[in-house]
Design a protein around this nucleic acid. Structure first.
Length: 153
DNA sequence: GCCAACGTTGGC
DNA sequence: GCCAACGTTGGC
């Protein structure tokens, strides 16, 4: 089992939206970055744990916990000309982008980005790396443990 | 709104 | 395959 951090803009889809979604989960779609796509396609599996992160908002930070509840499958928005995620170069035969479904575990206190930066134990987090923009990053088991048992208790 | 950092595109 | 131009991300 792996651990991940996934960014979402709360105005688009927040931890509260995830909490209200059906138990079977919500499709995580619209990511148009190859590295993030490859993570979903090749490394994410049912049962993986997720730090749900709010980005591009007044208080960026970790807002809750979730889990992956599907394997990767084609992101249907890539085929929809009306979607802002439409990709003219994607076909049903050769899809370019994938989704995974994610299910709510719990809401936590908002753990701000600035607080994450204060801890030496988290200095290696990809999220905190200079210039990082990836919307999905992996989280080490030690980092996961530190965050969930020390900072979110 | 600014701007640093990064990814993608496309001409050559 | 290089690289300049452009677009996007996202914290501040």
């Amino acid at each position: 089992m792996r651990y991940w951090l996934m960014k979402s803009e709360p105005e688009e889809f927040s931890i509260d939206d995830l909490a209200r979604a059906p138990r079977r989960g919500s499709a995580w779609f619209g990511v148009r970055n190859y590295q993030a796509r490859n993570f979903k396609r090749d490394q994410m599996h049912i049962g993986d744990r997720v730090l749900f992160y709010h980005s591009s908002c007044p208080e960026p930070g970790i807002a809750g916990l979730a889990e992956v509840c599907s394997e990767a499958y084609p992101d249907k928005t890539q085929f929809d000309p009306k979607s802002k995620y439409y990709d003219a170069k994607a076909t049903h035969e050769v899809p370019r982008w994938v989704s995974v479904d994610v299910r709510f575990i719990k809401k936590t206190r908002l753990l701000p980005l600035a607080e994450l930066r204060e801890h030496r134990e988290l200095a290696g987090m990809r999220l905190l790396a200079r210039g990082n923009r990836l919307s999905i990053t992996s989280v080490d088991p030690d980092e996961w443990k530190f965050i969930t048992t020390r900072l979110l208790k």
